[in-house]
Amino acid sequence: MTDFGAAFAAAFRLVVTLDANLVEIVLLSLRVSLGAVAIATLIGMPLGAIVALFRFPGRTGAVVVLNALMGLPPVVVGLIVYLLLSRAGPLGVLGLLFTPTAMVIAQVILVTPIIAALTRQVIDDLWGEYAEQLRSLGAGPAQALPTLLWDGRFTLLIAVLAGFGRASAEVGAVMIVGGNIDHVTRVMTTAIALEVSKGDLALALGLGLILIALSLGINGTAYVLKGAAQWRSV
């Protein structure tokens, strides 16, 4: 129990003193995860909607693969991105390994299937409700796609939040492609892993508490914003 007491004290101290290192780590964490989620949303939502609305050969397979990819192991994704970006790899010339950009790339790969798979289900259900009316008005799948994404926006928020949850919580991928370099690629989760291995469990737990608080804050903000917007447009 002393660890927990010390953890709260450590977390409190870090937050109250606005520890410069902590602020840097938190900001980088947010930048990487929010950036990855933003890009994954731009890719995953249209992708999920396309799989939901269009009929093409292999569609059932695509749905299964999309759902299965939600469970991609972060370390494996990290390893693959590492191999692609390493000096000897096909994208080595870009010199991206051990940069925040590499971390964003890895997280985009992790998060896109989650957003795409959840979007597909949401749009599939919505299309069931709207199909006859929209087809009667003359909308094919291509016209229905933006309409349904917009009409499903409040439900789709959960897909984005699920993606953010994945991105902010994972450690395997960012550790491998970022390298946990102090002041360069150190984020909350890699910092926690490091403190644990150094034996400073209180500091690790303190960082963990801050990470959970951040996640709560972002989800809470999203919920309040959603409520306000939904109230106006039902």
Binding site: E129, Y130, E132, Q133, L134, S136, L137, G138, T147, W150, D151, R153, S233, V234
Partner: peptide, 17 residues
Amino acid sequence: TRCQAMVFQRPVMLRRS
């Protein structure tokens, strides 16, 4: 198809005004 319209038993309204 451009010269017809249909009204359904249950109106489907989009989430907009």
